[in-house]
Simulated scan of single mutants.
Amino acid sequence: MTAAVLALYAVVAVVAVPGLLNRGEWTERAPRLAICVWLAACVSVIASAVFSVLAVAIPANVIGHGLAEVFQACATMLFDGAILTSPVVRAALVGAALIAARITYCGAVIVVGARGERRRHADMLNLLGRHDSELDAVVLDHDEAAAYCLPGRKGRAVITTAALRSLAPEQVAAVLAHERAHLRGRHHLVLATAEALCRAFPHLPLFARTRGEVVRLIELLADDVAARRHPRIHIAAALVRLATGRAPAFTLGAGGATALTRVRRMLSPAAPLRRRERLAGLAAVVFLLAGPVAVVAIPGLSSFLAHHCHNISIF
């Protein structure tokens, strides 16, 4: 029953959650919370899938006899050929291993590939760019107006000479604040996580939608951080001029496809979420992350109480 409930939830959530999360404009009002909810939904589905196959392999009554016997059961399944000959147990273990291996492989490919691209781009900036101490950014001679950041251990903000010519000084300061928000927030790691999940499960709606939403919400979040110190009108004006600018794929740029919609958001900001709404969002994150664990733990806990409560006495 536990395995069936978890598997059913995983299947339904993959299809239904994207539509539920896209209702209303609450994500634009709280992009950080929205990112957490989207990623928590993905983790919830993966955990449910893994726990469902493990629930088949490890019965609840085994968990109920104590944690030591859980490890003993795992060791037995690994080394006892008689148990491994069970088709159900073997299929369950192989399924869980394949899910974990797929996510690990896709994550490693993305991280290693992006690191190599960033290293080559950093070498190019060292040759062609110059550090401006007043701007605290690398200035790159280029005819296209663009601003972006190169994340990593030695992250740096980059702006082209065309952007410096087309932007007023206060607009330059605002757009560089946007890029530094990406660097301080380690947003490239969040994007890499979403990209790895999408690549691991490319045909599932939840993971594909999560990647697109995280890309959009990361930019909104950086806009909000920049707006704490710079007027929104300056950010909006800079976005208009940089809307057509193209940044390298492995960097985080201020312009891009979402620039014009972000201009509207900067000029007409929606009211932030009320306290009750934020608490509801945090509760959703907790439910998504803890729900699969609770479902798989309740049968084991019930079995544990059934086996050991008779040893408890009250004096």
Rank of each mutant, 00 (worst) to 15 (best):
I235M: 08
V88C: 06
A237K: 00
A68K: 08
S86H: 11
M1P: 15
R102Q: 15
L282E: 07
A108G: 06
H142V: 09
A297H: 09
E25V: 03
E170Q: 15
T85H: 15
E25M: 12
P31M: 02
A280D: 02
I233A: 14
E213L: 05
H142P: 03
V293L: 15
E195Q: 13
L288Q: 05
A200Y: 08
A40M: 05
A47R: 00
A168C: 02
G107K: 05
V50S: 01
D141H: 10
N311L: 14
A145T: 02
C74N: 09
R118D: 02
A73R: 15
N126G: 13
H65A: 12
A3K: 05
L176S: 04
T258S: 09
V296R: 09
V45F: 09
G19R: 13
V296I: 13
Q171S: 08
G116V: 09
A249D: 15
A68W: 04
R278C: 07
A196L: 07
S44H: 08
L305N: 09
A222M: 07
A157K: 06
H121V: 07
P248I: 06
P231M: 05
V89T: 14
G256V: 01
M77C: 07
R120N: 13
V88I: 08
R211K: 13
F51V: 06
A7N: 06
R275W: 01
A146H: 01
T251N: 09
L8F: 13
N311T: 14
V37F: 00
L128Q: 14
V225C: 12
P31W: 00
V296N: 03
L54T: 06
H142F: 13
A16C: 07
L282A: 10
W26I: 03
T244A: 13
V15L: 14
V215I: 13
L191P: 00
L20E: 11
T210K: 00
H230I: 12
R118N: 07
V263G: 03
L191M: 09
A270K: 00
H178P: 13
P202H: 01
E179Y: 04
P202T: 08
R130M: 10
G107F: 14
N311A: 14
L54E: 04
T261I: 10
L267H: 03
I312Q: 08
E117C: 10
H131N: 10
L20M: 13
D123C: 10
L78K: 10
G256F: 05
V175C: 06
A257I: 08
S86P: 13
G64C: 06
A157G: 00
F315E: 12
A192Y: 11
A34G: 04
L242K: 02
G291T: 06
V285S: 01
L220K: 00
V225Y: 12
A10I: 03
R228V: 05
R276K: 02
A41F: 10
R228I: 06
R216V: 03
D123W: 09
A192P: 08
V293T: 09
D143I: 07
D141Q: 08
L78Y: 11
Y9N: 04
R180V: 02
M266R: 10
T76W: 10
D143T: 04
G256A: 03
V70R: 05
M124L: 12
L206R: 07
G155Y: 00
R278W: 08
G19H: 11
A237I: 02
R232C: 01
L67S: 11
R118Q: 12
R228Q: 15
I314P: 06
